[in-house]
C-alpha cells in the first residue's frame, strides 16, 4: 500500500529542515504483514544453523536405527519387540512399514524431540543476548513483543519440522525395509493404507502440538539468562526432571499437570473409534503451558534491561 512511499529510498535523503519539522517518528503503520519479514529472516537464520541441521539429522537417524534393528532382530522370523517391551506398535512393524512411523514417534517423543525443542527454544533469546545481536535487533527496532512472538512462532515451526522429519524418515525406512498395505488398528479393525497414512499425518501433527508446552517453557527460561548454553541446559534439565517425576507413584496427584503426562495419548488415534479424552487433555495442557509461560516470558522480556 502506502508503505513504499512512506519509506525514503536510499537516495532520497530528506533535507534537514524538513526532517526536523516533520513530527518526530511519523509512525508508519506496518500493516498486516508487519511481522513476516522478521519471521522469514528468523526461519532462515534458524534453519541455516549447523546446530539445527545436526538436531534434525539426529532425529532422522532414530527411525533408521529402529527400522534396521527390527529388521535384523526379525530376520530369523521371530516377532519384534518380544514380550511387549519397546515403544508402542513395534511388534507390528514387520507386518506393515507404516507402523514404523508410530514406533519412531513414540520412541522420540519422550526425549529426542523435546530435547531438540529445548535447545532451539532455550537459545532463542539467550543466544541472541549472548552474541550481542539482541541489542541490534531491538534498536532496528524489532519490537520486544514482535521479536518474542517471532521467536515462539519459529520454535513451533521447528516442532512441526522436527516431527515431520521423524515421520518422513520413518515412512521411508518402513517402505524400504518392510511391506506396506492395509493395517489393523489397536481395536482390531482394518483400515486402508491411505487412511492409515492420513492418521499418521494427523498423529505427527498431534505430536508436534504436544511440544508446544516445552517450547513455551524453554522460551521463558531463555528470557531469564544471557547465556544460550545455560538456557538450553536448564530447559533440557527440566524436561528430564519432569519425566522422572512423572514416574514416581507418590506424585500421582501432581502428574496430570506435567507437560509430558499425556504425551503418549497420540496412540489413541489408532483406536477405532478414536478415544479422545486424553488427546484433548494433552492439547488443553499444552495450551495452558503456552499461555502461562508465554505470558511469563513476555512479562520478563518486555521489562528486561538489555545490558549485553
Amino acid at each position: 500500500m502506502s508503505r513504499a512511499e512512506a519509506v525514503p529510498g536510499p537516495d532520497t535523503r530528506p533535507d534537514l529542515g524538513e526532517a526536523v519539522a516533520a513530527p518526530a517518528g511519523a509512525t508508519r503503520s506496518p500493516g498486516l504483514l508487519w511481522t513476516f519479514g522478521l519471521f522469514r529472516s528468523e526461519l532462515a537464520t534458524t534453519f541455516r544453523r549447523w546446530r539445527t541441521i545436526a538436531l534434525l539429522g539426529v532425529l532422522a537417524a532414530v527411525p533408521i536405527l529402529v527400522g534396521v534393528a527390527i529388521r535384523i532382530e526379525t530376520s530369523d522370523g521371530s516377532a519384534a519387540g518380544g514380550g511387549g517391551e519397546g515403544p508402542a506398535f513395534i511388534s507390528q512393524v514387520t507386518n506393515n512399514g507404516l507402523f514404523l512411523v508410530f514406533t519412531a514417534l513414540a520412541a522420540t517423543l519422550p526425549f529426542f524431540l523435546p530435547m531438540a525443542i529445548g535447545v532451539i527454544a532455550g537459545d532463542a533469546i539467550a543466544g541472541e543476548a549472548n552474541a550481542g545481536t539482541l541489542r541490534y535487533l531491538l534498536v532496528a527496532p524489532a519490537g520486544r513483543t514482535r521479536l518474542l512472538l517471532t521467536k515462539y512462532a519459529t520454535t513451533m515451526t521447528f516442532c512441526l519440522v522436527a516431527t515431520l522429519v521423524v515421520a518422513v524418515s520413518a515412512l521411508t525406512v518402513g517402505a524400504l525395509l518392510f511391506p506396506l498395505g492395509d493395517l489393523t488398528t489397536i481395536s482390531g479393525t482394518r483400515i486402508s493404507f491411505a487412511e492409515g497414512l492420513g492418521r499418521a499425518l494427523f498423529i505427527a501433527l498431534v505430536v508436534a502440538a504436544s511440544l508446544v508446552g516445552v517450547a513455551a517453557l524453554g522460551l521463558f527460561v531463555s528470557t531469564l539468562t544471557n547465556s544460550g548454553i545455560a538456557a538450553m541446559a536448564t530447559t533440557v534439565g527440566l524436561l528430564i526432571t519432569v519425566q522422572i517425576l512423572d514416574q514416581i507413584p507418590q506424585l500421582h496427584a501432581l502428574q496430570p499437570y506435567f507437560f509430558s503426562h499425556y504425551w503418549l495419548s497420540f496412540a489413541d488415534l489408532m483406536r477405532e473409534p478414536v478415544y479422545w479424552d486424553d488427546l484433548v487433555r494433552n492439547l488443553g495442557l499444552q495450551g495452558l503451558y503456552a499461555a502461562v509461560f508465554g505470558s511469563a516470558a513476555w512479562a520478563r522480556f518486555a521489562a528486561k534491561d538489555i545490558t549485553v
Binding site: G25, R49, T133, R135, Y136, L138, V139
Partner: peptide, 20 residues
C-alpha cells in the same frame, strides 16, 4: 522506540554479528 528507532542508526559497544 517504535516511532523513533527506525530513524536512528546505532553502533553500541562494538558490533555484534551472526558468525555463520
Amino acid at each position: 522506540t517504535r516511532a523513533v528507532l527506525p530513524q536512528v542508526g546505532a553502533l553500541i559497544e562494538g558490533p555484534a554479528l551472526y558468525g555463520f
